Amino acid sequence: MAVDPFPFVSVSGTPFERGRQYGATVPSRIRRSIELYGDQLAKLGYDEADKSRLINEFAREIEAFGPHYLEEMRGIAAGAGVAFEDIVMINARTEVVAKARLEKNMPEDAELEDGCTGAVILPERSASGTLIHGQNWDWKAECAETAIVLRVVREDGPDILTFVEAGGLARCGMNAAGVCITANYLESERDFLQAGVPLAIIRRKVLEQGHFAFAVRAVATTPKACSNNMMISTVGGFAIDFECAPDEAFPLYPDNGLIVHANHWVSPVALGKLKDTGLTSVPESVYRDWRVRKLLDEAGEKLSAGDLKNAFFDDFLSPHAVCRPPRPSMSGNLSATVAMVIMDPAAGTMEVAPLPALNRNFTRYGMTGDPAPVALAAE
C-alpha cells in the first residue's frame, strides 16, 4: 500500500484556468478517482444513460448554487482529458453512490464505511495559544493513491488549501482568512427526501469565505440531500460543530476548550427529532470520539499539535479504532484511515500523513511555499 506523500497542486487564474492546471498536473490520480466511483456504479447495474441521469441531477444543483464550480470542473476535465460528467461524479460522489444504492434497494449493511474522527483545540487549551484543527479520514484504502493537497490562489477571495480526492474541489481544509473545515459522515431517515447541494461543494463554499460568519451560514443554511457533520473553526479562536440533517442544522459548542466528533449524532435536540441510521456502518463511532477526548484530557491542560496526533494515532480495539489499518469493511471493500490532517491556521500550514496506521511521516503544506517533510510525527 502506497505511503508516499500526497502530491501538491497549486493553481491560479480564472476558475476554468485553475481547473485546467489542476487536471493537467495529476491526470492519473483523477482517472483513478473516476475508476473507483464509476466501477461502483457499474457494479450496481448502472449503464451510461442511468449514470448520466443520476450525475446530472446533482450538476443542476451545483449550477444553481454557483456556476463557477462547474467551470472549474470543466477545466479539470479538459486538463486531465476526461469527461466533464466524471468530474461532477467525483464532486458529488457521496450523494451519487448513496442515491444509487437507494434506487437499487441495497440493504443498510451494504453501505460503505465513510468514517472520520475530527477535533478542534481552542486557544485556551493550546500550548501555543493558537487554535489547532484536525481529522482522521476513514474511507477506501485505495484513496491513498488518489488524494492530493490542492492550493487555490484566488483573485476574488482568500486563497485555499485543501486535502481532497483528485478531481474534487474541496474536502477538509483551511483558507488564508483562517477559516478551517472538517466533516464526518452521518445518516438519518431524512436522507434523500429532498434535492440539495453536494457536500463537497458546500465545503468549498466555506473555504471561499473571507469571514467566519459567512462560513457558518454556508454550513447551517444550505439545503443538502443527505446528512453530514461539519466542524468549522476560525483562527480568531472559536469553533462550532453542526450536525446537519438535509433540512436542519444542530449546533454543538466547545466543551472545556475542545470539540471532538465521530460518526454518530450527539445533539440531544437532533436525537429528539430524528433517527440515527448510520451505526450499522460505523458502530465503533460511539467510542472513537470518547477515546480522542479522553486522550486529550489526559495529556494535560495545555495541548500541542503532537498531542492531537497522538490521540488520532490511538489503536484502542484495533482494527475498529480511531486509527484504522487497512482491513476489509462490512461491504468487502478495503477500508482504512487514509490520512491524518492537522491544521494550524495561524501559521497557514497543514500537516498530512498518508495511511497513519502504517506510516507516521508527515508532510507540511502551506498557503505559501513548497511542501516539506516534518521532522517528527509527534512532539
Rank of each mutant, 00 (worst) to 15 (best):
D315Y: 10
R29T: 00
E145S: 14
A80P: 10
V269W: 14
V322H: 07
N256H: 15
I34G: 07
A98F: 04
P319C: 05
G66A: 02
A270D: 07
N333Y: 14
G79A: 09
G348H: 03
V82W: 03
F316D: 01
L358G: 02
C226M: 15
H264K: 07
I132Q: 10
V282Q: 00
M174P: 05
E63P: 01
K43Y: 11
I202E: 02
K273T: 14
N175R: 13
D370H: 12
G178N: 15
E111T: 09
A321L: 04
A24L: 12
D370A: 15
T277S: 01
A195C: 07
P251M: 11
E71M: 00
M231G: 08
A239V: 13
A270S: 12
D247M: 05
E103T: 10
T234G: 14
P5H: 00
L193D: 13
T117M: 12
G19N: 02
K104A: 13
Y253T: 15
V11Y: 13
D307M: 12
T14D: 07
G134E: 11
E61H: 02
G38A: 08
E35S: 14
I30W: 06
G348R: 02
F242G: 07
L44R: 08
A375I: 10
M330C: 09
C143G: 05
L44G: 07
N136G: 04
P354W: 01
A353K: 05
D4T: 15
E111V: 09
D156I: 05
D50E: 15
L150P: 00
G348I: 03
A80K: 11
A177S: 13
E17L: 10
G115W: 09
R327E: 01
M340W: 10
P354Q: 01
P356G: 10
L169E: 02
E155R: 08
V216K: 15
L36E: 02
I55E: 00
Y365S: 14
L274D: 12
H261R: 12
P371L: 13
L274F: 15
P67N: 02
I76K: 01
G79V: 06
L303C: 06
A218N: 12
R291H: 13
I34A: 07
G134L: 13
K99L: 13
S331I: 05
A110N: 08
G257N: 05
V179D: 06
A245Y: 04
I181T: 11
L317R: 09
L303Y: 09
A200E: 07
G348E: 02
V153S: 14
M1D: 12
A239P: 12
